[in-house]
């Protein structure tokens, strides 16, 4: 577990004083076994394709997201995260660390999950004013996922 005491003093002070937003949701029901489910992957690691714009460096954060096709060559992914609060080298060396496309291809091949959705959703997690994320971009990505027939989703921070 990351510990607050490991963070730099300004980051630590900010995180102590910041008022976190409580998520608002209605429970969804799993109606089939995982072996029959379409899995959607979501990360806030700010991965993007070389052909996509990177994420904006704004204090409030950039609530936009990039669509990552899950047949992408992982070595081509760029990391658009600008946060100095974490070590970027792990996800740069192996994007599976936060966007586990290869791991899910293996789980599909083994029949543990049904399939991996054709696209994944990549956000940049450094968002201090989450209004546009809550009201606009996260629901937009979620509607796309439902349209794709995604049954279950795994989300990872960095």
């Amino acid at each position: 577990m990351a510990e607050l005491s490991d963070a730099s003093f300004p980051v630590r002070s900010f995180m102590r004083l910041y008022r976190y937003t409580v998520a608002s949701w209605q429970p969804a029901q799993l109606t089939k076994p995982l072996s029959a489910c379409n899995v959607g992957l979501v990360t806030t690691a700010a991965f993007h394709l070389p052909t996509q714009p990177t994420f904006a460096l704004k204090l409030a954060g950039d609530p936009s997201f990039r669509i990552i096709p899950t047949d992408v060559a992982l070595t081509t992914l760029k990391v658009g995260h600008t946060s100095p609060s974490f070590d970027h080298t792990g996800i740069e060396r192996d994007p599976n660390l936060a966007l586990p496309i290869t791991r899910f291809q293996e789980l599909v091949a083994e029949g543990i999950v049904g399939r991996l959705n054709e696209r994944a959703w990549s956000f940049c997690g450094s968002i201090t004013k989450p209004g546009p994320l809550i009201n606009d971009t996260a629901p937009e990505a979620a509607r796309q996922a439902r349209g794709d027939g995604v049954d279950v989703a795994l989300l990872t921070p960095v």
Partner: peptide, 17 residues
Amino acid sequence: QSVGLIQAAFENEGIVT
């Protein structure tokens, strides 16, 4: 926090997260 808020949006679309 961002992950939890995006997760809520997916759950609200009927996706188990």
